Computed example of a mutant assay.
Amino acid sequence: MKPFRSIVFDLYGTLYDVHSVAGICDQAFPGKGAAISQLWRQKQLEYTWLRSLMDRYVNFEALTDDALRFTCTALGLTLEEDMARVLGDLYLQLLPHEEMPATLHRLKDAGIPLGIISNGSHKSIAQVVNNSSMGWAFDELISVEDVQVFKPHPKVYELAARRMGHSREHILFVSANGWDASGASLFGYPTCWVNRTLGAFDVLGATPTVVTENLTAMADWVLEDWDGIPEISEGDAAGDAATRPDA
């Protein structure tokens, strides 16, 4: 019997397709959409890591805008201000991965509390979720904005445990980003790495609990011997209480 009492998901790349922006990028810069999407995402991630190391936090919207401006400069493209706003807003309208809605329905029907922990700001997370009409699925929408540092800093994973109200060993962490799954594993979460690209796992001293190719397979694994949320023993209850904000 799996000991999970809740599941927390990464947002960008795990639940939502970050490359769903490529089509509009291609309309703005014909023939360049895929290249823009790839480099934009790469620089977006690099800027989260660099800003965390430099202790120079900015919110996700500003960071995404900076990454877009770098991308266009690097690709030799002229980015007008109006177009910068149009393209930047695409990250508020990301499309969910195809299997995501049905997967979350299955998990909710099983009575499992679900949350998101994301590098996005509170505004970004809420808009992405609401624009895709998925607000019904989540008990908690958790932003790094509350700790002013990006994943994979341990403060972020600690925040998720506090908000979900359980000790880390009772929360399944799900991410399609290997570095994120590594950070969560090293923090102490059981983790599912959704290996959409069938790539190699980052060599960072961590091993995911399970590897799946998509969210459907993740839910299959969670639910294959599911018998409801485990009862909380006295010792577990004390550990879980320590994760709550008022503890």
Rank of each mutant, 00 (worst) to 15 (best):
P113E: 04
Q93V: 03
G115P: 14
W193E: 02
L75R: 00
S175K: 00
H19Y: 07
G235E: 14
L104V: 01
R5D: 04
R163S: 05
A28Q: 09
Y12V: 08
K2D: 11
M83R: 14
E81V: 05
G31P: 08
Q44T: 08
A74M: 14
I125G: 02
L92I: 11
V210Y: 12
A241S: 10
E213G: 15
L107P: 06
F29K: 08
D17V: 04
P154K: 09
Q42R: 13
D246R: 13
F9Y: 09
S233Q: 08
S20N: 12
V156T: 03
T216C: 13
C192I: 07
S121E: 04
L39W: 13
S132A: 15
C72Q: 13
D146S: 10
D65V: 15
L104N: 00
L15Y: 11
S20W: 06
D26G: 09
K32I: 04
Q42E: 15
I171Q: 01
T64E: 07
V58R: 10
D220R: 03
T212S: 13
K151V: 05
S121K: 02
V128A: 04
R244Q: 12
S124T: 10
I7R: 05
A219F: 05
M218Q: 01
S185V: 13
T14R: 02
A238L: 15
V18M: 10
F138G: 00
S20C: 06
V156M: 02
E81G: 02
I116L: 01
L94F: 06
K155M: 05
R69M: 13
A35T: 00
F29M: 06
T212A: 09
D55Q: 14
C192N: 05
H19K: 01
H19I: 03
N130H: 06
I232P: 09
S175F: 02
L50T: 14
A217R: 04
D227V: 06
P30D: 08
S37W: 05
A28R: 08
G23V: 14
D146K: 10
M1R: 08
R196P: 11
L50N: 11
Y12D: 12
A238T: 14
L95F: 12
D82F: 12
